[in-house]
Simulated scan of single mutants.
Amino acid sequence: MNPEESMRTKRSASTRDDAIDTYTKVASIAVAIGGWAVGMYAGFNVLVPLVATAVVWLAGRHLFSEPKQIMLPAFCVQAGHLVWFVVVAAASRELMNPHLIDIVWLSIGLAWLWLRPGKSALYVLMVYQLLALPYNLLQFSQADFGTTANKVLLVHVIWRCIALFYMARMFYRLGKPVQSN
């Protein structure tokens, strides 16, 4: 390759990197504004799953071995959601809480994902999220704007969508061949 071709290649790579950086910055700003808007609307309802997700993330960075780091985002989002269900169940002091199925299914799925990260555990958790999401969307659409139920359901829908995104990402990464350096 002659020096002129080398410079063209470097420039085109640099231009691509600048474009990716610009898109990343724009997306980051859009997500920050969206997060702020959801936080302003949902208020305290978003605090428990958000803090729980962050705490699980910080603990998971140290507790999960290197091969298990691939599942950390999918695990953390759903563990934060699980903590929220448990807090609501404990606060209501009802033995047969409607969230019991969520608590049991998420607990089994997350334990499976922790012990044997792989596609089987992802299928169990994806089925759960894909069954619960339309139900939450239906309830959300029927709840009056500004009510506590509407705010809580918005957070449920967001957490389920984030969980599905990270599980799809993990599923994709599990299918890619491992690159050795």
Results as ranks from 00 to 15, higher is better:
Tyr23Phe: 09
Val152Glu: 09
Ala74His: 10
Phe165Lys: 03
Lys151Ser: 10
Met71His: 02
Trp112Ala: 08
Val157Glu: 04
Ser6Trp: 14
Met1Ser: 07
Thr15Arg: 14
Pro73Ala: 05
His99Pro: 00
Ala59Trp: 07
Ser65Phe: 07
Phe44Ser: 13
Phe171Arg: 10
Ser92Ile: 00
Val55Cys: 05
Gly118Ser: 05
Pro67Ala: 08
Val124Glu: 00
His62Gly: 11
Val104Ala: 02
Thr15Ser: 12
Val38Ile: 14
Ala37Asp: 12
Thr22Tyr: 15
Leu106Tyr: 10
Ala19Thr: 11
His81Thr: 08
Leu153Trp: 06
Thr53Asn: 04
Asn97Ile: 01
Pro67Glu: 05
Gly146Cys: 01
Thr147Leu: 04
Arg173Asn: 13
Glu5Trp: 10
Trp84Pro: 00
Ala37Lys: 13
Ala79Thr: 12
Lys25Arg: 15
Gly146Pro: 04
Trp105Thr: 03
Ile29Asp: 02
Phe85Thr: 07
His156Cys: 04
Arg16Ala: 14
Arg8Lys: 14
Val104Met: 00
Ser180Arg: 13
Asn136Asp: 12
Thr15Asn: 12
Asp21Cys: 15
Pro117Thr: 11
Lys119Trp: 03
Tyr166Gln: 05
Tyr41Gln: 04
Ser6Gln: 14
Tyr123Met: 09
Leu63Tyr: 05
Asn2Pro: 12
Tyr123Glu: 00
Ser120Leu: 09
